[in-house]
Design a protein around this nucleic acid. Sequence first.
DNA 1: TTGTAGGCGTTATCAT
DNA 2: ATGATAACGCCTACAA
Lengths: 350, 350
Amino acid sequence: MTDIDQTGNTPRSAVPTLRAGKSSPTIYDIAELAGVNPSTVSRALSKPGRVSAKTAQKIMDAAEQLNYQVNVFARALPTGRTQTIGLIVSDITNPAFFDVIRGAESAASARDYTLMLAESAESADLELTAARRMLATVDGLILASPRLSDEEIASLAAKKPVVVINRNVDGVPSVIADADAGVSDAVRHLADMGHTEISYVAGPERSWMSARRWESIKARCDWHGIMAAVVASSQPTVDGGRRAAATVRAGTATAVICYNDLMAIGLMRELQAAGLEIPNDLSIMGFDNIFGSDFTTPPLSTIKSPLGELGAAALQHVLAALDHADAAPTLPALPTELVLRGSTGRVKGS
Amino acid sequence: MTDIDQTGNTPRSAVPTLRAGKSSPTIYDIAELAGVNPSTVSRALSKPGRVSAKTAQKIMDAAEQLNYQVNVFARALPTGRTQTIGLIVSDITNPAFFDVIRGAESAASARDYTLMLAESAESADLELTAARRMLATVDGLILASPRLSDEEIASLAAKKPVVVINRNVDGVPSVIADADAGVSDAVRHLADMGHTEISYVAGPERSWMSARRWESIKARCDWHGIMAAVVASSQPTVDGGRRAAATVRAGTATAVICYNDLMAIGLMRELQAAGLEIPNDLSIMGFDNIFGSDFTTPPLSTIKSPLGELGAAALQHVLAALDHADAAPTLPALPTELVLRGSTGRVKGS
DNA sequence: TTGTAGGCGTTATCAT
DNA sequence: ATGATAACGCCTACAA
């Protein structure tokens, strides 16, 4: 009935008895070597404590000896579990995701999970494809700044635990960076420097976070009696920032906050190329504090996001949802923080 | 004999008959709906052409209707294949890997494979762990600038197709960036600018590529009658570059080439902070042409690596090895290319 | 071309 | 505490 070959009596190498032809040892091999039933081996390996200490030891030894490794597919078949969490970022080229990835990855490793990464290159279609494909092999999914629609996200979340980073989707748990904290300091700083009119270079239209940041800025500016306007943009990239330069120059604002550092850098460089002096002619500020944001001249002032923490928190939440179906509903918003460098300064002639 | 429940007569929803309790449709459901045998469904789905066009159509329709999705675990169990390729990078924080990742990912997508990404944070131990874990679930593996020993890599390669990027390991296929092409132009440029003594800030000791780059530089310098020396370093990071500043200042070289852009940037910034003028007091050049290397002031001159192509080529080679066991042995070396920007210039007083 | 039957390695449900 | 046995969903000789 079992599928163990009857060749066991003539081991030919130093390796303990192994079924003919097969390469990897299975729990059957262990069972044979330890003189117990395969199901006992399974128990010993997966649920410690459900087997007597003595036989457990025998089994462990045998496993060790055979250099046994579980077959994750065979395990996944009955259980559906793979010890793997997926993470989809909208643009792997954006350094902001570095720390998110790192945070998630180390949180995963700490719990013996593997992180599976995919990117969607800022395309909602690709993102959906990647998400679907991942959902099939993964225990849970993290969507970082997704470009998907709320409905699409909800439908994914209906199948397996999903948590969203930096976006709010009804019924789906999310971890978000609290813009208010940093924005508050940022706008106060700008006010102190004499600015009375600022503009916000927005991110992608579908970006929840961009809207959120604008709200926060607008509210703060109102409070300080500063005029604030938003200028639309194309892509949340260096190039997108460059392209916003013309519009920004056309306006009368003396300070501009960009949706993210990438755009801020692009904007700054384009403006400088056109002869403007930063921050003398214009103050520029970004969001995130990405790698390279201090490479520029002047170095970029920015509102720093707790990227690594976001990634780690997201992963932990997925794991929590996996453990207790009753997921802790509310996640704490992680605070942003103003990082003052050289790209913001006193308004000209004040 | 089949495990189809006998409840099929009372479908209760709009969804076509589905076995009670079960969530995902299987080939059995499709078989029932299409009025054929499950094995026929399996064939129709996995090997087109082995089934009559008519029944194939019926099966496809049924699959569509049921919104069928293969269970990758069930498929992987008999076949061992997962349609997944692993990629391990030594440091996800290094923008040089961006394009490698992108290149590999798009090459994978093009062939309907999924890319699984892991990083080792510059640790050989973590890298080995990640590699082992991945090898269990992946059809093939790509190691980008691995920190592993040759033996470790060879042992991994013994189990599944492995290709290495930017490193040469005996018996393991690799794709490498040909330093010579760019170095040749770079050294000539430096010679033209009057430099007669340059130094090379090396990368990690275990780095094959660092040694390779140094060889290439040394050879080229000899040719031009330029003195060349290597200065050891700690980490191939911005910080590592910073720490090399003292040694560099102590020397007499008028130009320095760093193992990579990260180090070049760190070195440059540290030197500038100490009052040096780049390139007037010292010319600096990096390798790779990473994101942000043009953000600095002056923008960094560098020897650009074909990162995306490396990633894509590596992936294609893994796939090729999977297809025909007789892997094409020799991979073309992809050429590097000099990118001249502002950090290199005429030697002082010449 | 299509159906039959057994196996892939584990877990889970029974008994014992 | 341990053993027997049936899933899990798919693939693949082999037979028809």
